[in-house]
Write a protein that binds this DNA or RNA. Structure first.
Lengths: 167, 167
DNA sequence: TTATCTGACACTAAATTAGTATCATTTATT
DNA sequence: AATAAATGATACTAATTTAGTGTCAGATAA
């Protein structure tokens, strides 16, 4: 892969949000999401807590508790999730500090990188959870028509290899 | 930073190529490049060997030896260098295997990621060493006119923090 | 009162990236 | 011929980041 675009944190978070998005208004437990998506349970728990802290979701403790989508799916951008888990999009330090790079060779390269990073940031900023949910619905619809295979993910083990990873 | 775009390998490699590009036809030693750019010597040596193996440069052993740019700067793309050190740009495994993702949630997300990756790949494919060399020349010209500061990088230590890194 | 949840947080493991060291060989110079 | 300055090859360590696990306290529904 060209470069590490999304870490597992972000990947799992978005998949969890997709599950929550298909159950809007309902509380879904970490256990359920973990099993449905094949995400390691403890890892997922931390991720959900983070989403809570950032106001994307709310939770209810105790039996029949779980996590619920708090914001409108159209108001949740993939970039927001990336920023939670992989840090704020920031321009190169050099520009931020308004200094001229000590090293010119680095500088010309960085200038290009910054330009591309801005493109990437903008692109991820345009993908909303709402859009992904629509895509998911469409995908499920066609798959069902085609009788290709079933919807739910089968494996609940934390190390299943049926799923592609993003590296 | 949003995501790790370039590793040190790639960063150092491009900076080394920029040095070689400003000395076209001449052999420049790893020692010289290391000192001028503040790149750890041994690390740089391995990088230069890799550039050799990939035909971007050639080397001459012995005293007064070094590394020389072999290809035309306009024929060297930043993407080429990235691919040498960070691997081939590849589409997501799912697409490559022409399989439908077992996990639909991953699938819709991956589809977007692939789209963005292709943009990034295209962008890095359009940046040539020749372009960077032109930028560098311009930068040096204006800096000289402005009397802002000197051209050469001063620090030769391997851990200097004056230079911005790309993370 | 019990099973099922989340909150908080400490911890370990795995993978990747960055950097170092060594020895053999080549080559220009003296 | 001897020496110094260079690369080739390759093994190794260190640092950092990413991924994953474990535990205990408290909340809540049945």
């Amino acid at each position: 892969m060209l470069m590490k675009v999304l870490t597992k944190n972000t990947d799992y978070a978005i998949r969890a949000l997709l599950v929550l998005g298909t159950h809007e208004g309902e509380y879904v437990s970490a256990r359920q999401i973990s099993q449905q998506q094949g995400i390691p349970y403890q890892f997922l728990r931390r991720i959900l807590q983070e989403l809570n802290k950032n106001g994307l979701t709310t939770s209810r403790e105790g039996a029949h508790g779980g996590v619920r989508l708090e914001k409108n799916p159209d108001a949740i951008r993939v970039r927001d999730v990336i920023e939670i888990f992989q840090g704020k999009v920031e321009l190169s330090e050099c520009m931020f500090r308004k200094q001229i790079c000590a090293n010119r060779a680095s500088c010309v390269l960085r200038h290009e990188i910054m330009r591309i990073e801005e493109i990437v940031s903008r692109e991820f900023g345009q993908i909303t959870l709402g859009k992904l949910l629509t895509d998911l619905t469409k995908l499920n619809a066609t798959a069902t028509m085609d009788h290709t295979d079933e919807f739910e993910i089968i494996n609940s083990g934390s190390h299943e290899k049926t799923d592609c990873d993003h590296r």
